[in-house]
């Protein structure tokens, strides 16, 4: 089974973000970067699927040079090889990105494409579904587990409010993986060593031919809409002030 896992590199979770001069992206020169957490779960699901069904795991990542680091980490965790679509930062729209990814996968003909349910930067939560549409694959979102059955796969999907559902579909198919559904593995020393010699195929992103249907005008820090009272001082002082407010102002304790 050929399993492609689409991953993205995003700013580390606790980064302090500033808007850059263009006003449409963040100052990203001094940030540290990591794999988009939902994609780490997609990678884990891909590695587990390979363990049960055999085959290979190919990592697909679109991003600038720095994404090589995240790709190497995925290879160190056990992916067999990678495709790096070289493009500037990830602020392109999901349809343009999905078309670029589909093009890069044309010769691969994967049986299963996995990705995280959303990115922690743009958060559109739809690149996977759009990629399925562009590739003509059936799909399922918020997948907790995958098993192979005769004629295809059976997945467990998460629905709202604590409900779940099994869904069956033929292969090839695309799945977006729910975060937290499995324990993430660490790279072993051997894995890190091996990763250095694994293949990374680099492809150039084509310049978009179709006119985009949405435009990001500007980004900005959210305005505080709610007036929150922030207490300052030692832990004892702040705790005392908070308790006083909760007792006598909000009257909730």
């Amino acid at each position: 089974m050929k399993i492609v896992v689409a991953i993205k590199q995003v700013p580390a979770r606790d980064s302090l973000l500033k808007v850059d001069k263009s006003g449409t992206w963040i100052e990203d020169a001094d940030l540290s970067w990591e794999i988009n957490e939902p994609d780490a779960y997609a990678l884990e699901a891909g590695l587990q699927l390979r363990e049960s069904a055999g085959g290979e795991v190919v990592v697909l990542c679109a991003g600038p040079d720095r994404a090589t680091q995240t790709i190497r980490e995925a290879l160190a965790k056990g992916a067999d090889r990678a495709i790096h679509i070289e493009m500037s930062h990830g602020a392109s729209d999901p349809l343009a990105l999905a078309r670029t990814m589909a093009k890069a996968l044309e010769t691969e003909k994967p049986d299963v494409v996995l990705t995280g349910l959303q990115s922690d930067d743009l958060g559109y939560g739809q690149t996977g579904v759009v990629l399925a549409e562009v590739m003509g694959y059936p799909h399922a979102t918020l997948v907790m587990s995958v098993e192979t059955v005769s004629g295809g796969i059976r997945v467990k999907r998460e629905l709202e409010d604590g409900w779940f559902q099994h869904v069956e579909m033929p292969l090839p198919a695309l799945l977006t993986i729910q975060s937290g559904a499995a324990k993430l593995r660490y790279a072993t020393l051997m894995g890190i060593k091996k990763a250095k010699s694994k293949e990374i195929r680099r492809v150039e992103a084509e310049t978009a031919s179709a006119a985009p249907s949405v435009r990001l005008e500007r980004i900005y820090l959210p305005q505080k809409t709610k007036r929150s009272q922030i207490f300052e001082g030692t832990p004892q002082e702040t705790a005392r002030q908070l308790v006083e407010k909760l007792r006598f102002e909000a009257r909730v304790i």
């Binding site: 009272q229 300052e232 004892q236 702040t238 705790a239």
Partner: peptide
Amino acid sequence: EAPIFEAADYGIVGDLFQVVPALIEAL
């Protein structure tokens, strides 16, 4: 900068391992 402060009426910016014991004492 955590977005939770945007939703909060009252906030304490600090190490929870210091703030929470102090809060239990104050209560």
